[in-house]
Simulated assay, not measured.
Amino acid sequence: MLEIVYGLQKFNEYVYGKTVLVETDHKPLESLFKKPLSSAPPRLQRMMLKVQQHDLVVKYKAGKELYIADTLSRSTGSDPAEEHEEQYEVHVIENIPVSQEKVMLFRSETKKDPVLMKLKDTVLQGWPTNRKDLDSELTPYWNFRDEISIVDGLLLKGDRFITPEQLRPQMLKILHSSHLGQEKCTQRAKSTLFWPGIIIQLKDMIEQCNISNRYRNAQQKEPMIPHEIPNRPWQKVAADIMFFGNTRYLITVDYFSTFIEVNCLQDGKAATVINILKQHFARLGIPEEFISDN
């Protein structure tokens, strides 16, 4: 029997405590729900905040196969309960570690950048369905078009400023002003700024920096430290996730006997791993020590 639930309040009551499969014909949503909330554009963050209390599994399905949902999406009726729906505000710019002076500079330079103005018009008017119909200058932005939004005259990719071309050399110098290594500079860039090729340009700049090369940390050679062998089986157990092909496997090893348990994982969720480990512990006993890299 198919039960259709109308309104956000009734939906919350219906799915509370359940794992719900949501089928959508918007393929980018499938990948967006697997990423951190901050990587989504503000309009989608509001939607994701509303359903965050539920355990949703978003799966793509072609629109021609979503018969009932496609029909209901054309309904003009409204639910009175939704009139009192809680409003979710997403203040993106306030949470980005950038001074107001820099925000004003980005805003003014964005207006002068012809490529970003084309990008802005495309975001407002809607992206074409085919990549070939897109302006060649905007092709580098195609793969993450659903993450781009406009907030207070600024272009954002998730929670990162899309930097005008005139400011990019200056921003690279600021990112590497402390002469940090590639990893820390990359993390710093990923928290605030974006433009196509920023990571490659940043790495090239660091590799050519004499100061960074002079004080670069050399990898120290350390001998392997063996674990102490336990006194009995299943006293000390380790587990890790392994990929073979496109399939995940949970590997559980006993340190005393080197006995191995291998389990295929449907997904990488913690609940799935915990459920399998509980089955092992129920059969073989609870270990005194459990080792994992997470």
Rank of each mutant, 00 (worst) to 15 (best):
E183Q: 07
F144T: 03
L154F: 04
L124W: 03
S108G: 01
P114T: 12
Q182T: 08
Q100V: 13
S178W: 02
D152V: 02
L172H: 07
P114Q: 12
F106T: 08
P140E: 11
R131L: 03
M171E: 12
L138H: 07
E137R: 14
P164T: 02
F144N: 05
H179S: 12
I148P: 04
Q125S: 12
G126Y: 06
D113T: 05
D135Q: 01
P140L: 05
D152N: 15
K111M: 15
E137V: 10
Q100F: 02
T122V: 12
E165L: 12
P114H: 10
L154Q: 01
K132T: 14
I150V: 15
R168G: 00
G153T: 12
K157C: 11
I150F: 10
L155Y: 01
D159S: 15
P128G: 09
R168F: 02
R145D: 07
H179V: 09
S136P: 11
W142I: 08
I174R: 10
D133G: 04
R145S: 13
F161I: 15
S177A: 15
D121S: 14
D135P: 02
T122N: 06
G126C: 07
Y141Q: 00
L155D: 09
M171W: 03
G181F: 05
W127E: 09
V115Q: 09
T139D: 13
K120F: 13
R131N: 08
H176L: 11
K118E: 10
P164K: 02
L119N: 09
F161P: 03
S108R: 15
K111L: 15
W142H: 08
T139L: 14
L156H: 05
E147D: 08
F106C: 11
G181W: 08
E165Q: 14
E165W: 01
M104W: 01
E165N: 06
R145V: 04
L175N: 05
L124N: 11
D152W: 01
I162D: 03
S178I: 02
E147N: 07
P128Q: 11
Q125F: 00
L155K: 10
G126S: 05
L172R: 00
K132S: 15
D146R: 04
F161G: 07
T129G: 13
P140Q: 06
V151E: 14
V123D: 06
H176M: 07
I162Q: 03
L167P: 01
E137A: 14
F144K: 07
E101R: 02
E109M: 11
Q100E: 15
F161Y: 15
E147V: 04
G158Y: 01
S136W: 03
D133S: 14
L172Y: 02
E183R: 10
I150P: 09
L105I: 03
L124M: 14
V115N: 08
G153Y: 11
V115L: 10
E101L: 08
L180K: 06
V151C: 09
E109H: 09
